[in-house]
Amino acid sequence: MVQAWYMDDSAEDPRQPHRAEPGRPVGLEQLRRLGVLYWKLDADQYENDPELERIRKERNYSWMDIITICKDKLPNYEEKIKMFYEEHLHLDDEIRYVLDGSGYFDVRDEDDRWIRIAMEKGDMITLPAGIYHRFTLDEQNYVKAMRLFVGEPVWTAYNRPADQFAARGQYLAFLAQTA
Rank of each mutant, 00 (worst) to 15 (best):
Ala4Cys: 06
Tyr6Ala: 06
Met7Arg: 10
Ser10Gly: 15
Ala11Trp: 00
Pro14Met: 02
Gln16Thr: 02
Pro17Phe: 08
Arg19Pro: 12
Ala20Gln: 04
Arg24Glu: 06
Leu28Val: 12
Glu29Cys: 01
Glu29Ala: 09
Gly35Phe: 01
Tyr38Asp: 01
Trp39Met: 04
Lys40Ala: 11
Lys40Leu: 14
Asp42Trp: 11
Asp42Thr: 12
Ala43Ser: 15
Tyr46Pro: 03
Asn48Asp: 13
Asn48Met: 04
Glu51Phe: 06
Glu51Asn: 06
Glu51Thr: 05
Arg56Ser: 15
Glu58Asp: 14
Arg59Leu: 11
Cys70His: 00
Lys71Gln: 15
Asp72Asn: 09
Lys73Leu: 03
Glu79His: 03
Lys82Pro: 00
Phe84Pro: 00
Glu86Val: 10
Glu87Thr: 14
His88Tyr: 03
His90Arg: 10
Asp92His: 13
Glu94His: 04
Glu94Met: 01
Val98Gln: 03
Gly103Glu: 04
Asp106Cys: 01
Glu110His: 14
Asp111Thr: 09
Asp111His: 13
Ile115His: 00
Ile117Phe: 08
Ala118Cys: 09
Met119His: 02
Leu127Ala: 04
Pro128Val: 10
Pro128Asn: 07
Thr136Asn: 08
Asp138Trp: 00
Gln140Thr: 14
Tyr142Asn: 03
Lys144Arg: 14
Val154Ser: 14
Thr156Glu: 13
Thr156Val: 08
Tyr158Trp: 03
Asn159Ser: 15
Arg160Tyr: 12
Pro161Cys: 01
Asp163Leu: 07
Phe165Asp: 13
Phe165Trp: 12
Ala167Asn: 15
Gly169Trp: 05
Gly169Asp: 06
Tyr171Met: 05
Leu172Thr: 08
Leu175Ile: 05
Ala176Asp: 12
Ala176Leu: 10
Thr178Val: 09
